[in-house]
């Protein structure tokens, strides 16, 4: 009997790390699946296409921002400025809308890249801690956006409105854009020299420097990409709102993005980037709040459940060390 218990314990001891590894790798997918199943069974009208579309459209900006955030976190950094970059992009896009939607979009995205470059330069070349550098930008860039466009401005450019509201084969264009960006970032991380270097630098910066990697340039680029993606998210969100609202657009989105990355299993200590899981993390949080709302639970409940999930995710990523 005692022997049997011992054997069981031994088996558990062997099994435990594997279970943890599995939870860490696929936990997000499982959680999303469970929530979907729950909703299919218990939430009326959940399977309606309209409902799905709403959920996806709502989560799109978070997904796009989180893609950039995942890259930054992969280098042991963090980018708090993304929400403000969205606001700046919203301001820039309406300011230059007179030249047509495409030039306006380009200017807005370039603006985001410039902010990203500023943050990246502070981190890579000046040596400011990422949280401090991007916190400064979070405050300053939001202010700049408000100076450029002090209050909400509605616009009537049909092309930009179409970008935000049209669909292809029933799928909203902005969702398609987010999907395309996910594929691109996935490709960059997995298949490019740059992507491998990002992960290596996050894993061991000193070793990367001694291996001749262009550490500073890679860091700078990562923040530029994060800025670009955030700006694009800002333009898309503005297109959907059909109004530019630099005062409140993207408020606290940095926290949602970090949550998505963390819940997706990317460790904050760097050296690992999980792109698809990050998208799943964003979907999970969206689905969770939608589920609780549909079941008439107050917002405060959602927040508390989210907190539990974040802690669980962090615990899971910790365990493997």
């Amino acid at each position: 009997m005692a022997e049997l218990t011992a054997r069981t314990q031994a088996r558990v001891a062997v099994l435990k790390p594997r279970v943890f590894a599995w939870v860490q790798d696929y936990g997000v997918y499982a959680a999303v699946l469970v929530l979907l199943l729950f909703n299919v069974l218990f939430t009326p009208h959940f399977l309606d296409a309209a409902n799905f579309r709403t959920q996806l459209v709502q989560v799109t900006p978070i997904v796009i921002v989180a893609l950039g955030m995942a890259l930054v976190i992969g280098t042991q950094g963090i980018d708090l400025s993304v929400g403000s970059v969205m606001a700046l992009a919203a301001a820039l896009v309406v300011m230059y809308l007179g030249y047509g939607w495409l030039p306006a979009l380009i200017v807005a995205v370039l603006g985001g890249a410039v902010v990203g470059a500023a943050g990246g330069a502070l981190v890579a070349y000046v040596g400011v801690q990422p949280i401090v550098a991007t916190l400064a930008l979070l405050v300053g860039v939001r202010g700049l956006a408000n100076v450029l466009v002090p209050q909400l401005v509605e616009f009537r450019n049909p092309d930009l409105i179409a970008l935000g509201s049209s669909s292809v084969a029933g799928i909203p264009v902005i969702v398609l854009i987010a999907a395309a960006l996910t594929v691109i970032v996935l490709f960059v991380v997995r298949r490019t020299t740059f992507g491998r270097q990002v992960v290596a630098i996050g894993g061991n910066r000193t070793a990367s420097e001694l291996s001749g990697l262009p550490v500073k340039r890679v860091l700078l680029t990562v923040y530029v990409i994060s800025g670009l993606l955030a700006a694009l998210a800002g333009v898309l969100a503005t297109a959907r709102l059909q109004a530019s609202d630099p005062t409140s657009l993207g408020l606290f989105i940095e926290l949602s993005a970090i949550t998505a990355v963390v819940v997706g299993g990317t460790p904050l200590t760097g050296g690992r980037i999980r792109v698809l899981s990050t998208v799943m993390g964003a979907l999970l949080m969206q689905l969770l709040s939608a589920t609780l709302i549909k079941h008439n639970l107050p917002q405060s409940w959602t927040q508390m459940v989210q907190a539990v999930i974040i802690l669980a995710a962090v615990y899971a990523t910790r365990e493997r060390r």
Partner: peptide, 29 residues
Amino acid sequence: KAEGIIPALSVRENIALAALPSLGRAGVV
């Protein structure tokens, strides 16, 4: 440990690290 290996990466990635730029074309490995 501190200056050589990148512990989270595989043997393969660690070996290829310094030679990466030459092990691909146009930045794609």
